[in-house]
């Protein structure tokens, strides 16, 4: 037994200035059938059977009934839209991960873009400023369980080197472009971090040793001062002896 489905789309488009567009569309088995054209006040069939169906509905009464319904729906939706504008216009910035993958001769780069909202996004590959179009494939925009979206773009390297390749992302939540260069890997970053920490430790050891050495030098200087004091005492004794001789 054949199964069929009918779909009805009632749409209202808004921007910050107010209502932009209204439309009413019908679909049968996943295909457009006809739609109501409010500008010309006609029902437009978009397929052969749809044209016959539209012909039967070419009456001003029918169109006015649809227009009235649209006004009611769009008015209610506009109220919701104005209340929810700040909420629904919120944006979430994506995180980007650039990885290499694949075996010998089948190497490719993978740019994982995750956690963005809304779902309109542009992901591009460039090498030294020039865009790359061949060998690019993508998962398309996929949803994430927390309500944000994700997408992965793949770049087959072929004969190309990965040096200088960049993944560029344009999104509502980003000013300008977010760029991820190949080689900006988190693992490399952690390696650099470990190396820097090690260097700092070595440097601290050096400073500590020099400090200990300087303390040793200061101790010797103190001994010299003691000798100086001893010399002065001998001089005083000599003067006293001379004074006694003169009196006799």
């Amino acid at each position: 037994a054949d199964e069929h489905a009918f779909q009805q789309f009632i749409e209202c488009a808004f921007n910050s200035q107010g209502q932009v567009d209204r439309s009413w569309r019908y679909g049968y088995d996943g295909k457009d059938v006809m739609h109501v054209d409010l500008a010309t006040e006609t029902v437009v069939g978009t397929s052969e059977p749809g044209k016959r169906l539209a012909e039967e509905r070419k009456s001003t009464e029918y169109i006015r009934r649809k227009e009235e319904k649209l006004k009611i729906v769009c008015s209610a939706v506009k109220t919701v839209f104005l209340k929810s504008n700040n909420t629904l216009s919120r944006a979430a910035k994506p995180t980007v991960l650039l990885l290499s993958n694949g075996g010998q001769g089948q190497e490719y780069l993978k740019c994982v873009v995750r956690g963005f909202y809304p779902n309109v996004i542009r992901v591009r590959w460039t090498q030294k400023g020039k865009p790359i179009f061949f060998g690019v494939s993508t998962t398309g925009t996929l949803p994430h369980t927390d309500g944000t979206f994700q997408m992965t773009s793949y770049l087959s390297l072929g004969n190309m080197t990965a040096h200088g390749v960049t993944c560029e992302i344009e999104h509502l939540s980003i000013d300008g472009k977010l760029r991820k260069n190949y080689g900006d890997n988190p693992w490399i970053l952690s390696q650099i971090t470990v190396a820097v920490v090690a260097f700092i430790l070595g440097f601290v050891c050096t400073i500590a040793v020099i400090f200990v050495w300087k303390r040793h030098q200061t101790t010797k200087s103190h001994d010299d001062e003691t000798n100086g004091a001893s010399d002065e005492s001998e001089a005083s004794l000599s003067l006293n002896v001379m004074n006694i001789s003169q009196e006799t």
Binding site: Q8, I10, E11, A13, F14, N15, V20, S89
Partner: peptide, 9 residues
């Protein structure tokens, strides 16, 4: 530009 839709099927 935002678009609201009601879909019945």
């Amino acid at each position: 530009y935002h678009k609201y839709g009601l879909i019945g099927a």
